[in-house]
Write a protein that binds this DNA or RNA. Structure first.
Lengths: 225, 225
DNA sequence: CGAGGTGTCGTACCCCGGTACTACGGTGAG
DNA sequence: CTCACCGTAGTACCGGGGTACGACACCTCG
């Protein structure tokens, strides 16, 4: 099974170079080219490639926007190619935008030819591949976002007891005392006692600040509501 | 400048294989080996390698914990090697733990030898590199965490006016009505009016739920407090 | 110009949330 | 056994938060 690839780049030389390089591989077919994002979308719709090699900066529609359109489900279109983004320089925003859009890879154009070929194969297989500098930033970002060993054993928020932690989670979902009491099968007053202790231990004033704390500490995470 | 590497793996065969492979490279020196995490720490402290190749599962101290200790600043120790994690199988938790710990790479042992050599060079250069399947998961995670284009122009939360949005941000920081009034130079009653309208428009009950909404909608983000 | 949206502020009222203090059964450590 | 801690729960109090209703100035748009 050969890998069907199209190449979108505004520079004809670059297209020709990549096309020659890839076409020389027995398992890769270059089935189309496009000089801008708009035509890339059109060619992709017509040829249904497995992989789209896409330059970030292009006229008409840039690579980021084109990737978004290819990868977000425009109603009626079933085909979703993998997108491998390319760029000459190494700019944060581009990378993050591309990954958000759902790109499967991000390479710098100065990468060795063998890397490009390998990347196409990796991406076609449904895996992903990034330039090392991009990988580093992504990892740093990841580690920065979740530095704490989530909450497997206890997480031990400033000496909160397990029960208090449980109550705090409910507060962080926006529940009232009576709702928490119902959820945990407790008297409302007991909930109040817990809440009071939580606020005291964490040095907070009210439940709103407790919600803030829950998010900032990582006890709860956006998207897990 | 040669790259100084140590290899930590509980299987002597594996160590020997990797050592032979790497030592054959003109720019790589294998300066130590260790059969478990404890000795890996000891050897690293003695030889100050540039890169530590670390198997995930090892006796005494496993690779994850060893990586944490190498990479977290134990007072007095200045040397911080790069850590390249290795594993036979491809388990989510290991990867995330390793990246949290600050590892610069994560490879599967079935990767081609050339990849391992390339990875050592990449990591030594301060960049990072992951197995393609790991990269894919990391990207998916990233895209899932931050799908929305943050909040550039207005973000237009369910028809909130700019002023109301501003008040909501202050609520989301845990401020009381009187504190918000002071911060925005308003009468407290005015703040109450805004708060009331915010709750009505967003169909929320109290300010605690407003805080939840602010985080869940991306109006505010953990770490930006 | 008049209508509507926005931002501002007032009075009045009620209730949930938070505080203070006390109390009691269970459990684990010393 | 005693002591400390945890989880449970009660009574009593009060203040901030939220609601209801009204009011006025400003700005924009038809």
């Amino acid at each position: 099974m050969t890998i069907r690839v199209i190449i979108a780049d505004d520079q004809a030389m670059v297209r020709a170079g990549f096309a020659a390089l890839l076409a020389a591989q027995p398992d890769i077919d270059v089935v189309g080219e496009a000089p801008d994002g708009r035509q890339a979308l059109e060619v992709s719709g017509r040829t249904h490639p497995d992989v789209v090699l896409m330059d970030v900066r292009m006229p008409e529609i840039d690579g980021l926007e084109a990737a978004r359109r290819l990868l977000s489900p425009p109603p009626g279109v079933v085909h979703r190619p993998r997108v491998l983004m390319l760029t000459t320089f190494d700019v944060d925003d581009y990378v993050y935008e591309a990954l958000r859009a759902g790109a499967s890879g991000f390479l710098l154009k100065d990468a060795p030819p063998a890397d490009l070929i390998a990347a196409v194969r990796v991406v076609a297989a449904g895996e992903a591949l990034l330039a090392p500098s991009v990988t580093r930033r992504l990892i740093e970002d990841f580690a920065r976002q979740r530095p704490a060993p989530r909450r497997d054993p206890g997480l031990r928020l400033n000496g909160l007891t397990p029960r208090e932690t449980e109550v705090l989670e409910h507060i962080a979902r926006g529940l009232s005392n009576s709702e928490i009491a119902a959820a945990l099968v407790l008297a409302e007053q007991t909930v109040k006692t817990h809440v009071g202790r939580i606020l005291a231990k964490l040095d907070l004033r009210d439940r709103a600040q407790a919600v803030v704390f829950a998010y900032e500490s990582g006890l709860v995470t956006p998207g897990t509501a």
